[in-house]
Amino acid sequence: MDFALIAKVWTFFAAAAWVTLQISALAICLGLCLGFAAALASISRNVLLRFPARVYVSIFRGTPALIQLFLLYYGGPQIGLQLGPFEAGVIGLGINIGAYMTESIRGAILAVEKGQMEAARCLGLGHVQSMRNVILPQALRLMVRPLGVNAVALIKGSAIVSTISVVELTYTAHRYISSTYKPFEMFILASLFYLVIVSVVSFAVNRIDERVALES
């Protein structure tokens, strides 16, 4: 173990961890927006809304995130979409995780007991009103944990943006492995940052989940 080397380079890893955090946070926001929109569309009775949402989920869950990212970053300019590495990273990761989040959100909405909708409609609420005032508030409690799992997966999955030269944690680790030939030290250093980020997010998700969980 070369601790002197770790002491020398750790600040670069800390700066890179900040980039990982930024890219993950932005991608999670984008994924949540897409996820909510696609989840609501996918349970709609209107086939024009339902079908595109199902196609989106199927395509983006059915192909590797890396290929999606390459298609966006390297293939984008061919269809007039010129993005920098950071923007491409956020958009690529966000669209990908959005497909998984759609399923988490959809699952939570469908998990709300059917009688709730029937009761709301019986009380004279419209479909949209019942959805907004009765179903969604209950579904929100149920989707905290699965969305948290998606978010943690995204933070780890954000490592793939290193392949389009975003200088985040994995890119930094790879660069220092190549220049110092100390793979174990660099792995452990980068891992520490990932483990801290992932542990904090998991802890936060657990606390929120406990807070909002229904008694019973």
């Binding site: 780890k156 490592a159 392949t163 790879h174 190549s178 174990f184």
Partner: peptide, 21 residues
């Protein structure tokens, strides 16, 4: 715990470059 908290890509680099070491 260690492998669950870190990205596959990083593990790949560790195994490919680390086992040579």
């Amino acid at each position: 715990w260690l492998f669950m908290g870190t990205p596959l890509l990083l593990q790949l680099y560790l195994i490919y470059f680390g086992l040579v070491q």
